[in-house]
Amino acid sequence: MKIRVNRDVLAEAVAWAARVLPSRPASPVLSGLLLEAGDDLSLSAFDYDVSARAEVDADVSEAGRVLIPGRLLAEISRSLPDDDVVIVTEGQEAVLTCGSAEFGLVTMPVEDFPAMPSMPPAIGAIGGGVFASAVGQVAPSASRDDTLPMLTGIRVDVEGETVTMAATDRYRIAARDFAWRPVSPDVAVSAMVPARVLVEVARSLRGGEVRVALGDGVAGFESVGRSTTVRLLDEQFIDYRGRLTSQWSIRADVRVGPFLAAIKRVALVAERNTAIRLSFSQGQVLIQAGGGDVGRGAEVVECELRGDDIQIAFQSQFLIDGLSGIETELARINLESPTRPALIQDVPGDAGPDFRYLVMSLRLA
């Protein structure tokens, strides 16, 4: 194999593919990146659960395949001088030259690398910006505890032209609705996708349109010459829709920017896992925290309250995560009592809210 490729193009593609490399591979070859040169250059990584493949323009003098230690290649690629990169296979080495720099990397046996999974059938497409926004809103509510795999995923429910993403860690539920272009107008499918994979996909596939594929226990995402597949989790999930449609007797509308900034300031004196207290009254909300060994903080923000005055408390980061997901100027906080969860949502238009975030309250001291 002999290729010439732009340094920045190579470094970006290697970094993107290498993100799925396992930290503790079950087999040594799974720590490698597979480079395949044909009409262009493709770079692939696979750990049996997640695959990543990037295709880039390259000047191919001699076609071929080579398996190179992925993390080492990523470190080298981003540190090369500003010049084209030439990669040539010579025996058991892949010789990489860039300007005056040269590296001889010991290759791994290509024949031992597992066959990459094929992309399942496409079911629709969505703009990369909308996709990234939706994932960013719901992913913070997914659990990091692998003992309950169901809670580490993002539920994706597709019904015709509407997609809903939802996640929960038992203490909050986040859900986001958005429109997309389905392949079939009557498509109706559900899947549980590992949240960490969706976050990586959303972070890297912002450009252009994201094509979504689903089938045989695998989800696939393609955009701008890059593709990812992931093995799905068990479809079991809570009835999140029923929990997001309660009736509320108290409603407070606040401007997101000032409210979120005030909470972050007051939270500086909140000790770990202690509460942020919100006291809603006509025309304002008082934000309070602390009072222990560190100190205390308080700030008042304007709000429009409908219903009775109420005082309620939340874990500070949970509250920040929910408000950070609001993309409208105003956030609506729906309340019932100090001991019941609260529903944070964007101020709905004619079609209702796109983002909803149900968060448990804490006992007031």
Rank of each mutant, 00 (worst) to 15 (best):
T274D: 07
P258H: 07
D82G: 13
V197Q: 03
P114E: 05
R272V: 10
I87K: 04
V269M: 09
R71N: 08
D321N: 04
N273T: 14
D354E: 15
G104P: 10
V266F: 01
V294C: 10
R176Y: 11
N334S: 11
D57L: 15
T147Y: 09
A219E: 03
L364Q: 05
R356F: 09
G160I: 01
I87H: 01
G127Q: 01
G225N: 06
A179Q: 15
K264G: 08
Q247H: 15
G291F: 01
V230R: 03
G322Q: 03
V285P: 04
L319N: 00
L21W: 02
D146P: 12
D177H: 13
L244F: 01
V20E: 02
A18G: 01
A101C: 14
V20G: 00
V359H: 00
D234M: 08
R65W: 10
D309S: 12
E36W: 10
S61N: 13
P120D: 02
D308E: 14
L34K: 05
V183G: 15
F46S: 05
V189F: 14
G352L: 04
D239Q: 06
L10H: 01
S23C: 11
P114M: 03
S118Y: 11
N6A: 11
L30T: 06
V254Y: 02
T274L: 14
R78Y: 10
R243E: 12
A15E: 10
T168D: 00
P258K: 08
S133G: 13
L30P: 01
S133K: 14
G290A: 07
L43C: 10
C98T: 11
V66L: 06
G136W: 09
V50R: 04
D239G: 03
S190T: 11
A188Y: 12
D308P: 08
